[in-house]
Every structure is written in C-alpha cells, then in structure tokens.
Nucleic acid binder design. Structure first.
Lengths: 249, 249
DNA sequence: CGCGCTGTTGAAACTTGTCAAAGTTTGTGG
DNA sequence: CCACAAACTTTGACAAGTTTCAACAGCGCG
C-alpha cells in the first residue's frame, strides 16, 4: 500500500499468498500464531517458487538458505549414495515443510523433487531464526515441526526394520489416507503421485513387490487399484494388517 | 558463592559438572558459544541424573519436559509398536542429545534406556527455548543438532531400505568407529555396549544374522570379535563394503 | 558354582529380489 | 489429432538372502 497503484502487479500476488490468508495455515508454519504475529510471518515469506513435475527445488550439495513450505503439489526427497543407489526419504504434500536436512551442515543432503507441477513458499532460514527469537509461539512451533520430522523418521525406521511387505504397504496407504483427510480430501480415494518404484524405494521394497502387494490387496478386496488411482475399501483391515506378526504373537 | 561455606556440598558437584568445564563441550550443546554465553548455559543445566544399566531416563508416553545430554555411558532409544515389536531407533554416547522426539507432541514417543551405568545432564526444554531466544549462537546450534538427527535418521533409512546385511553391519561398525574417534577413543578397538539383538533391531536384522555376519567378517579377516569386544582390522575394506552393489553396477 | 542370558552355528522354510516378457499409459512430435 | 516411443505396471518363474527353529557353548551374575 505504500507503492502507487498499478506499479507492482506482483505485490498483489504476494498479498494473496500471505500466510494469513492461506488455506493451509492450520497445517503449516503459522499454527498457533496470533494475528499480529502472523503478519510478521507474512513479511518474511515473500517469495514463492514453482517446480514443474520432475524439477527439484534444491539438490544434494546445494548451499542451504531456506526452508520450503509446500503450497500446492507433491514432492519427494531422495538421497543418492556414492555407488548410485538412491533412497526416497520422504513424500511431502501441502502444508508440509521441506529442507530441514540442510540446517545441520548448511548444505542440503538430499534432492527435493516435484512429483507434479507444484509451488512452494520460500522461508529464508536466517530470517526465520531472527523472527523466532522474537516470537516464542513461532519458535515453539518450529521446534515441534522439526521434532515431528524426527518422530516420522522413527516410524519409517520401524516400518523398514521390522515389517513385512504387506504391512509396509498397508502402513503407507493408511498414512497417506490420514494426510489427505487432514487436507480435506477423501480418506479412501486418491491418486498416487509417485511411481511404484518410488513407493518401493521409500518402503525398502522393489517395484515388482509393490505391484504384487497392490494386486494381492485388490484380490482380497481391501483396495481397488488402477495404476495411480487407489480406492481404499477396507481401512480397518489395513490398520489391522499393520499390527500383525505372522500368525502368533 | 552467595551461600555460606559448607551448606550445600551438592553445589560444588554442580560447579564441577558445568558445561564450561566439561570435557565433552566441543561435541555437545555448548559448541560455538562464547565464554559469557557458556556461563548462561551453565545456569540452565543444573541437574544431572544417573541411570543404572537397564534403567530408562524416560519412557514412551511420559510428559516431555527436558532434553538429556549424555555425560557418560551409553543409551539406546526404542519404540514399541502396539503388537509388541520394538525397534531400536538410535544409540547415543557422550555429548549426544537424547529426547528430541518429545518436543512435537510434548509426550515422549520412545524409551531411552541406559546400556551401561550412565549419567545425563538434564536440559529443561522451556528454559532452553528461553535462552536460545537470547543467545543466537545457542539457537543456531540447537537447530543444527536437531537437523543432524534428521540427517542421521535418513542415513539409517538408506541403510534399512537398500543395503544387505553385510553392508548394514559394515556401515554400523564404521559409524561407531568414527564416533569413538571423535571422543578420543581408539577407532579400531572398542566394546559394544549393546547385544546382538539390539544391533539387529537397529539394523533391521535378526540377532542370528548379526552374529553370522560378525563371524563372516572375522573369517575374512576384516575384524576380530569376541563377544562384545571388537577390533577392526581393515577399516578401508569395511568402507568399501558399504558402497557395494552385489557384483555389477 | 550353577542358572540364565547372550552368542554361535546348522538346516530348512519363506519372503523378497532378479530376470524376463508383455501390457498399459503418457507424452511428444509429426 | 494420431502415431509412436518411452516410461510405467503387471505377472510369472526362479534364485538368493534372511528368518525361523533348534541345539549347544560361553560368559557373568547372584
């Protein structure tokens, strides 16, 4: 409002994308902030970036400067070992924060790749640290976001370390379902944005195994799958499957 | 010094255990702090707790109130799923911070169990947040510590998701070796504080498999093992093993 | 000094991976 | 807008790695 009318059409766009008016604010960084605090966060988050399907917002080895809040679309993060294996370490959807891997060394340690045309809000990290020193609610929430990432990773470790293929895929589907619900989508019907190979990499399985288990679930009537379109028919059954150990125990 | 002489013998103990005089300060929370800042951290960390082998400093479901810096000894963290499986999510030695899993929900999500008689410094979390709002260097370092935990977990996910038993155990041994070196111990000779079963749980293997791979490594001349005593003979070979994909690739 | 926990080793079973082939969808260029 | 190529998915048969079950040995704690 300090600029004359019509000079900066972009600034209008920026206003429209402010946290204070963002539909994802209840899931994202602004959680728990009061009005005045929210406005200060708006000041900080001025830039958005888009990534077409297949493009990355950062790559392993890039200097770390910002976190990214997924505004729309879908991302995966992958790490690549020296010998060429790569491992999907996470999938991220609207309202989730990507990039915290880079804080520790000030270099990113993974690639963040868009699985569909996507948009992120750029959160300059040093400014986030500045602001979170002044706004305890923001500091607290940011710490919670990081902590939850750790807890989520522990869950994946449990999954990879002690579950069998069926259990892993059931857990994966239930988790996706929950996250879609939180965003106002159907809990039982969604499109997978990732390939069988990416699911497999995340779950520590080969793509053929993922495909086979999908087919088995379909045969059993738990889900219906057609390529990337999944409809979950029997969520309780999937949940039950997660907590199953062979037959005994 | 404000109390009269002899009244509080404990305070002397506390002085002696201040961060400013702690041998682990280059590995622990005080990294990067100036003298004056260090003293403020000393004010915050007044309490130590001991845990005998097998005891836990917190359990899953406990209210979260503090982080714990390992002062001496060795810990594991484990999560227990509803159906009774448990998964070791990490091993922690001197200078490492335990408890960040609890920040997100204000409840701990795992158990932290001492693998030998141990001692931790209690870091009240709300006071840590207060102080880190005032001391940017502390804030920054704390964020790095959390981020590194995330990166470490990603490494474990890679290990669990795409490595075979030999590679996993090689990676585990190399990792332990590095951490012992950083603490001034031998890189090639150490006592394992954990059982085969705990190693297996961490690495997503059964204890028999761990035992077999240890034996195989010994037969090949890479290491020498006797129960919990390990001597690494050929570290380069172990490193090479980590980055190996079958024969091809 | 013995009992129990921990570790080692063998053989068989099972889960998942590998290789191969064919079907399906998606995207691109004519 | 169609055709073709590339990418992705499905399915089968077989191989390999890991787990399971079992038996026994060794160390350490009470």
């Amino acid at each position: 409002m300090t600029t004359s009318v019509g000079i900066q059409p972009l600034s209008i766009e920026r206003l429209r994308t402010a946290c204070s008016t963002c539909g994802l604010r209840e899931l994202c960084l602004p959680v728990g902030l009061a009005e005045a605090e929210l406005e200060r966060l708006d000041d900080l988050i001025q830039v958005r970036r888009t990534a077409k399907k297949g493009q990355s917002i950062y790559r392993s080895g890039d200097a770390f400067a910002a976190l990214y809040a997924v505004r729309s679309g879908f991302f995966k993060t992958t790490i690549l070992s020296e010998d060429g294996r790569d491992q999907v370490t996470g999938f991220y959807m609207g309202g989730e924060i990507v990039g915290m891997d880079g804080i520790g060394t000030e270099l990113h340690t993974c690639d963040a790749v868009a699985l569909e045309d996507s948009e992120v809000c750029v959160i300059p990290f040093s400014r986030l640290e500045d602001l979170s020193r002044q706004v305890p609610a923001l500091q607290s929430h940011f710490h919670k976001v990081m902590s939850r990432e750790i807890v989520r990773d522990h869950g994946v470790m449990m999954l990879l370390g002690s579950m069998r293929a069926e259990e892993r895929l059931a857990a994966f589907l239930v988790n996706l379902s929950q996250r879609f619900v939180a965003r106002g989508y159907s809990p039982s019907e969604f499109y997978l944005r990732m390939t069988r190979e990416e699911i497999g990499s995340y779950l520590g399985l080969k793509l053929e195994t993922v495909s086979r288990v999908f087919s088995r679930f379909q045969d059993e009537g738990y889900i219906s799958v057609q390529q990337k379109h999944v409809r979950i028919i029997d969520i309780p059954k999937l949940r039950q499957l997660i907590g199953q150990r062979g037959g005994a125990c």
